[in-house]
């Protein structure tokens, strides 16, 4: 459970983004986070995962501030950035997936890596340099591990951006399958019409605060 208490954050001194925000994110709820461009959706996710530190207040996971290196959030959660380059490490998609072999506790076996790339139809790109892939292809590669991460809490920033119809459907099916397992997720998207009825809650960021609808 992630708890946000009286949290304020601003970019510089004259651009307050959130003021005195109080939220509790439970581990088994699916949440759609929406808002206008620049409202602070991605920033809120980055605050939640501890990539940014709040100006005041706290964001904790198991009562440990998420920006502290010792916070165990990523033993239980998976974050996918809006920036596709940020999600991938290594020279090729195969090397990127190989790094998952080092995760503790183990998530995947070596022989499962190539089939994972096939789950989003990018097996033929396995040994291509990541730098030569298109934004859409990078997005698909970064989504390939999702079937192995159903047990984790997903924090996904615009995962549908740049996907074609077939892969959108694949991702939607994964999200539905995850909900059947009662494992939570928070996802940022502008596609409110499609996603609202699939999610437990919809949160909208507007005027430096958060409004919820069930």
């Amino acid at each position: 459970m992630i708890v946000i208490r009286d949290m304020s954050y601003s970019w510089g001194q004259d651009k307050p983004l959130f003021e005195h925000l109080d939220i509790t994110i439970s581990a088994n709820k699916s949440i759609l986070l929406t808002g206008d461009n620049g409202a602070g959706k991605s920033t809120l996710l980055r605050l939640i995962i501890g990539a940014l530190q709040p100006n005041s207040g706290s964001i904790t996971y198991n009562e440990i501030d998420t920006y502290r290196p010792q916070c165990p959030l990523f033993a239980e959660a998976f974050y996918l950035s809006q920036n596709t380059t940020e999600n991938l490490v290594g020279i090729s998609p195969f090397e990127d997936l190989s790094i998952w072999l080092m995760a503790q506790p183990p998530i995947v076996e070596r022989h499962e890596l190539e089939p994972l790339l096939d789950s989003f139809g990018v097996a033929d790109l396995a040994h291509q340099p990541i730098a030569h892939l298109s934004t859409g292809e990078k997005r698909l590669v970064s989504l390939c591990m999702l079937p192995q991460l159903m047990h984790k809490y997903w924090i996904l920033d615009e995962p549908f951006a740049g996907l074609d119809a077939i892969n959108r459907k694949r991702l939607l099916e994964l999200i539905i399958a995850k909900q059947k397992l009662h494992r939570g997720l928070i996802l940022v998207s502008h596609d409110v019409d499609t996603l609202t009825h699939l999610m437990d809650e919809t949160w909208e960021i507007r005027d430096r605060s958060l409004s919820r609808s069930l």
Partner: peptide, 23 residues
């Protein structure tokens, strides 16, 4: 990004660490 995958770099075996940093 590697840490967010649940990889504890500090506790990796020396050989794995070199492989990771090289990659």
């Amino acid at each position: 990004t590697v840490r967010r995958r649940g990889v504890k770099i500090e506790s990796l075996h020396y050989k794995d660490k070199i492989q990771l940093y090289k990659a």
